[in-house]
C-alpha cells in the first residue's frame, strides 16, 4: 500500500529550524533538522538575518541527511513541498529557492504550502487519516490560533487567534523575567515540574470574562498575563524577597493551559466536532498535554497531539501536508511561487 504512494520531500525554513522531511503516504521516512537556536539564545530571541544565514549553510547537508536516513536518492522523490508562509521573509526565501532548485533539477512538481496547515497535517504521520471535522489548536512562538478543519487539503477556517502575544512568546518573556534561558518553553515546563505549586499565585486568564467572551470567544491574549507575572516577580525582588521560580513557572503555565484548553473545547462544542488536534511548539508542553487529555476526556472529545518532536517546526510536517495535497490531486504551484511572510491561514496551497 504505502510503497505505491508518492515520495514527498518537505522543506521548512520559516523561523530558526532548517527542516527536511521525507514522507510516503502517512509514513515518516526521515525528519532531518538543523537548528540555529543556540546562535539566537544569547540575543534572547530569533534574529532573522542570523536565521537566514544558517538556513543557507544547513540546506544541502540537511537534504543529504534526510535522504541518507530514508535510504532514498533525490531522484526517487516524486514531489517537493515547501513552507511558502507565514514566517520570516528572508528565512522562508531560502527554503523556497532551495525547493525550486530541487523541483527544477528533478523535474518534479512543487507545492508551496502553509506552515500552520502543515502543523495540522503532521498528525497523519502519527495517528493516520485526519478526522472529518476537527478543531485544530496551533500554539507556538509565532502563532496561537483555533481553526476549524473539515478537509485540510481544501482549506481551514480561522475561529480565533491571539490578539497580542503568541503563547510561546509569553513563555519566552516569562522565562526571561525568571532568569531562565531562551527558548523559554522547555525551561518553564521543567521548572514547573520540579515541585512547582500551580495554585501558588492565580494569574489572570486573558479574554475569559463574560464581557470579553462576547467579542473574543475564541481569541487569546497573553500580553496581560506576561505583564502580571513580571509585576509580581519584580515586586517580590523590590521587597527583597526570594522569587519562588518553580511556583511562578507552574502558576503561569497553569494560566496559559487553562485558557487554551477551555477555549479549544468550547470551539469543538460550538462546531459539534468530536476531535481536537493540537500542534506547534507549545503543544510539547507537558502540562498542556495533560490538561487537554483530562478535559477533553471529560467533554467526550478525542484529543490528538503528535509526539513533541513533531510539534515543533520540522520538514516532515511540510512533507505530510504535501502528501495529502498530492493524494487529493491538487494543482502544483508555479515556479514563480513567492515566499509570503503573511500568508493567510485560509490559503493552504499557494
Amino acid at each position: 500500500m504505502s510503497e505505491n504512494e508518492p515520495l514527498i520531500l518537505g522543506i521548512e525554513t520559516s523561523c530558526d529550524e532548517t527542516g527536511v522531511g521525507l514522507v510516503r503516504g502517512h509514513t515518516l521516512l526521515a525528519d532531518a533538522i538543523a537548528s540555529s537556536v543556540d546562535e539566537h539564545a544569547r540575543f534572547g530571541g530569533v534574529v532573522p538575518e542570523v536565521a537566514s544565514r544558517a538556513h543557507l549553510e544547513a540546506m544541502v547537508p540537511t537534504i543529504r541527511r534526510a535522504c541518507e536516513t530514508a535510504g532514498v536518492k533525490p531522484s526517487d522523490v516524486d514531489a517537493i513541498a515547501v513552507t511558502s508562509g507565514p514566517g520570516l521573509a528572508g528565512a522562508l526565501l531560502v527554503g523556497v529557492a532551495a525547493a525550486k532548485g530541487l523541483a527544477l533539477s528533478l523535474d518534479k512538481p512543487l507545492y508551496g504550502v502553509n506552515h500552520l496547515a502543515a502543523h495540522v497535517a503532521v498528525d497523519t504521520l502519527e495517528h493516520g487519516e485526519l478526522p472529518k471535522g476537527a478543531v485544530a489548536m496551533l500554539v507556538s512562538g509565532g502563532h496561537s490560533s483555533l481553526l476549524a478543519v473539515e478537509d485540510i487539503t481544501e482549506g481551514v477556517e480561522p475561529m480565533g487567534s491571539t490578539i497580542d502575544d503568541a503563547a510561546g512568546e509569553a513563555f519566552d518573556k516569562v522565562a526571561r523575567v525568571l532568569g531562565l534561558p531562551f527558548p523559554g518553553g522547555p525551561y518553564v515546563d521543567k521548572a514547573a515540574r520540579d515541585g512547582g505549586d500551580r495554585a501558588y499565585v492565580t494569574f489572570p486568564r486573558g479574554l475569559t470574562s463574560q464581557r470579553d467572551l462576547e467579542r473574543h470567544r475564541f481569541d487569546f491574549s497573553f500580553s496581560g498575563l506576561k505583564t502580571a507575572v513580571a509585576r509580581w516577580v519584580e515586586a517580590k525582588r523590590r521587597d527583597g524577597e526570594d522569587v519562588p521560580v518553580n511556583h511562578v513557572a507552574a502558576a503561569f503555565q497553569e494560566a496559559v493551559c487553562d485558557v487554551l484548553t477551555r477555549k479549544a473545547i468550547d470551539a469543538c462544542k460550538d462546531r459539534g466536532y468530536e476531535h481536537l488536534l493540537i500542534g506547534g511548539g507549545v503543544a510539547a508542553n507537558s502540562r498542556l498535554r495533560q490538561m487537554a487529555e483530562e478535559r477533553c476526556a471529560a467533554a467526550g472529545i478525542a484529543v490528538r497531539v503528535p509526539r513533541p518532536g513533531l510539534c515543533t517546526d520540522n520538514g516532515a510536517m511540510v512533507a505530510a501536508l504535501g502528501s495529502e495535497l498530492v493524494r487529493a490531486g491538487k494543482t502544483p504551484s508555479p515556479l514563480g511561487l513567492p515566499a509570503d511572510s503573511s500568508m493567510p491561514i485560509t490559503t493552504v496551497l499557494n
Binding site: H55, L93, G101
Partner: peptide
C-alpha cells in the same frame, strides 16, 4: 543585498548537489 544574494547561492548549491 543578503536576501537576494542567498536566492542565487541556495539555488546553485541545491541544483548542483542533486544533479
Amino acid at each position: 543585498p543578503f536576501t537576494g544574494l542567498r536566492v542565487g547561492l541556495v539555488t546553485a548549491r541545491t541544483m548542483a548537489d542533486v544533479l
